[in-house]
Simulated assay, not measured.
Amino acid sequence: MTHLVQQLVIHGLTLEGQRFRPSDWAERLAGVMSQFRPSGSVGGHLTYSPYVVPVVLDGVRCVVVDQRLRELEPLAWKFICDFATDNKLQTSEKEVQIVNRRRP
């Protein structure tokens, strides 16, 4: 079974094209958001939320935010969006297909 998920990508580049600092900003932001998880999921020590994940895209540090976070915790979504706006970071949106795999 598959379904489409909308994602917000916060790029580690300012609107002027400069790299955002500090260099570990994506991991820090994802760490702050690690408590927001789907109901029933268990987070271990030092794990990121599946809704807010640091990645490197085309050599640029980014944070990919699952838009389901908006429904789960609107204030967390606002925090993420305000972070991008306040720091004048480039953002984009994408839609990805998620495959649900059931374990036997």
Rank of each mutant, 00 (worst) to 15 (best):
H3E: 11
L4C: 09
Q6N: 11
Q7D: 04
L8H: 05
V9W: 02
I10H: 01
I10S: 00
E16D: 11
Q18D: 12
R19S: 11
R21F: 04
R21V: 07
S23P: 04
W25M: 12
A26M: 05
A26V: 05
G31L: 04
M33I: 03
S34D: 04
S34H: 05
Q35M: 10
S39N: 10
G40T: 01
S41N: 08
V42S: 13
V42F: 09
L46A: 15
S49V: 01
V53R: 09
V53K: 09
V56M: 15
L57G: 03
L57I: 02
L57V: 05
G59T: 03
G59Y: 07
G59Q: 09
G59E: 02
R61S: 12
R61G: 07
V64H: 00
V65P: 02
D66K: 12
D66V: 11
D66Q: 13
D66T: 10
R68H: 08
L69R: 11
L69M: 11
R70K: 14
R70D: 03
L72P: 04
L72M: 14
P74R: 10
L75Q: 12
L75V: 03
D82Q: 12
A84W: 01
T85K: 15
D86L: 15
K88H: 05
K88N: 12
L89W: 01
L89V: 03
T91I: 14
K94T: 11
V96H: 02
V96C: 04
I98A: 01
N100Y: 00
R102D: 10
R103K: 12
R103H: 03
R103Y: 00
P104V: 10
P104S: 09
